[in-house]
Design a protein around this nucleic acid. Structure first.
Lengths: 217, 217, 217, 217
DNA sequence: AATGAATGAGACTTCATTCAT
DNA sequence: TATGAATGAAGTCTCATTCAT
């Protein structure tokens, strides 16, 4: 999420340039968000104390409150930041062959453990926090699904994909991605017998094959 | 999860018969586990107070501690109970046609909102609680995956399924199930345009079709 | 305010008898209110910590919150209790001669330092706490004023008092009482030169004389 | 209290003329005192933050500390300033008829809501702050009492007033003034039935009449 | 065995004060 | 001299757990 501060800054390039003070505030916020994301991803929201976030950010506890109203707002900020990253990344995905699209969808997300863990954290917290739900679900998840759906419609129109319901297919792929993100935490211990471990790429190729050709003989 | 208490009792049927006292203890434990499952599923672990569990179980707070050492142990008991249910249900699944297997896998689980929410809850909590992880992941998820894998091996041997890696296919299906369990909370708001809402069965059929025939033309 | 718990109990004598549990709760509440009144009267609301109240009540800090939602509610309870005392005391005042009425009004209230200090505390806190304002001002002060006014109307009707506006006179007397309550804190240091200190009774007689006969020759 | 800053400057007129630097410092102090008086009068001491004072004074928070050691000193300065105003005003009061003296005493003070509220605030704070007590009580209140006493002695000597104890009478009048200052906040809601509201002047005349002629028939 | 009041550790948050710029 | 971000002490409140009845 350190690239994030960059992406955030880039997003507003067209706006009037930031004053020195605004830049400093933005940098501090980014520093705190980065620390919060780190600790949240490791320990979850409830098990994280503001003291720990402050220590990770190398700041005093009170300083957090000069930039965020409360702990909850800090979680929302991390979720917004996360959603922004997902949205930006997906905006650059190009639909070419079916294989390429699937590979991109299945492997591009969740390469980093922290990102996977944050993904699952927000999934959990959205149930109890409407703002997280809004920023995370309605931005990140909605974006993943609708962008995938758009790509599928195009592939069907191009005659590359067979004419399934693109809405359902997009949701199925998204669900599979999310499920794998969750499983990944446990897969290292639960390996197919005798096969040793898969690399993410190998796994991606196999899954892609399953989806494209179908499981039926 | 009221059947659950039954399943717990059934498990020990082969052991020497329970004394009256042991039956009373088991019944109380089941009562408490049922209450805890209910409240945990609605509010999550951290947002649930022992007071709420006691009220739901129609007992005093202190009584909980006569049967469980602490709140954490209560969560573990709920997880064990849940895993038992999943294992029992899967033991009865019979492999016939591919369609039947897929339908069973995709729709049997998660018909109830509470079960879906508990599933998600354990997924979250197992990151912070090794015992939940052990009982939930290594029993429930491991069971789902290996049983599915077994079924797939059979289907491949029968020539019904094409010879993909059954370990990967089983994991993909499991991941999809888990992903849909998570998405379900949000799907009502994120509907395919103009299509109205899917019933679980409709969705199951579509997804089954995707998986069996593949997405490729 | 220890008599208070009595008065409170007396008030509900006509209601169905309290269960043992209700009596215990009432006693604990009274114990906590008594402790809070003591510390508030000495240190004011803001300078009082919940820790101090708990120590004074010989309870743990958390126990306070089993009986009152928060510190503010504790202040309100003390104010209600205080208002109840004032109301009860005034209900017993009998109007006979002008001198007796004045003496009663001027000396009955505020014999104890704690009561005087609480009176001033509520006066201050009502500005920032609508509930204190309601219970304290609209019960205690309103009662003092209207009861005095009633007495004055009677005295005028009896031909003992000259026909001034009884509403204004009642407010003037009340204001004087309140002002003396405040001054009392400082009067010990600010004595009339050479006269030594007044006892409350001496002062009451002099003031009564001023009011009854007027200052004019 | 804008005249206040003036009064502060006037006080030192007889001292050697101020250098430019000293004038600037005095002006800044007056600016800060004015802001503090404004916010204190509205919100009370404890509910006022140094941030709010700084904003009201249109200065940065740190700047306050170049002129006052801490928040407490700021309150003391406001109290001193207030006492100064009271003393100055009373110095100009001339004793002629009894009616004139009473009217002056009863209406001159507390025409402004802010002054009334500050009066009450100092009354409260002096219980917890010896310096406020010293400057406010021993200057303002003491001055009011002793000046009134002096006037009363004169009136008695002139044969206009009957020979009561002038010390007590002065205290009674002062107490009444203070009581009305406190009641004023609530009087709007506690009106004599059917009489509508009093203007301060009407009230002053009635009260004067009560005091001069006495309540007795 | 059941009760539920008492406990107190620990979390979040506020805000007066400091200090580098 | 003015600034305002950083600080951290201290306060309120929650809630899992204990224990006397």
């Amino acid at each position: 999420m350190s690239e994030n501060s960059f992406s955030l800054l880039n997003m507003v390039k067209s706006l009037p340039p930031l004053s020195r003070r605004e830049r400093r505030v933005a940098a501090r916020k980014a520093q705190i968000i980065e620390a919060a994301a780190e600790v949240f991803s490791r320990q979850g929201y409830e098990h994280t104390t503001t003291k720990q976030i402050a220590e990770t950010a190398d700041l005093a506890e009170g300083t957090l409150y000069n930039y965020f109203a409360n702990k909850r707002d800090l979680l929302i900020a991390v979720a917004q930041d996360f959603a922004q990253d997902v949205t930006n990344a997906l905006a650059q995905t190009k639909a070419t062959s079916m294989e390429a699209v699937m590979a991109e969808l299945l492997t591009a997300r969740f390469r980093s453990g922290r990102e996977r863990r944050l993904f699952m954290l927000f999934l959990h917290e959205s149930r109890f926090n409407p703002d997280v739900r809004q920023y995370y679900v309605e931005e990140a998840i909605y974006t993943i699904i609708t962008e995938t759906e758009k790509i599928f419609r195009q592939l069907i129109a191009d005659g590359v994909m067979r004419p399934v319901n693109p809405a359902v297919a997009a949701r199925t792929i998204s669900a599979t991605i999310m499920g794998y993100a969750a499983l990944y935490e446990f897969l290292q211990e639960i390996q197919p017998d005798g096969d040793g471990r898969f690399t993410p790429n190998q796994l991606g190729q196999e899954v892609t094959d399953n989806f494209i050709k179908g499981l039926q003989k």
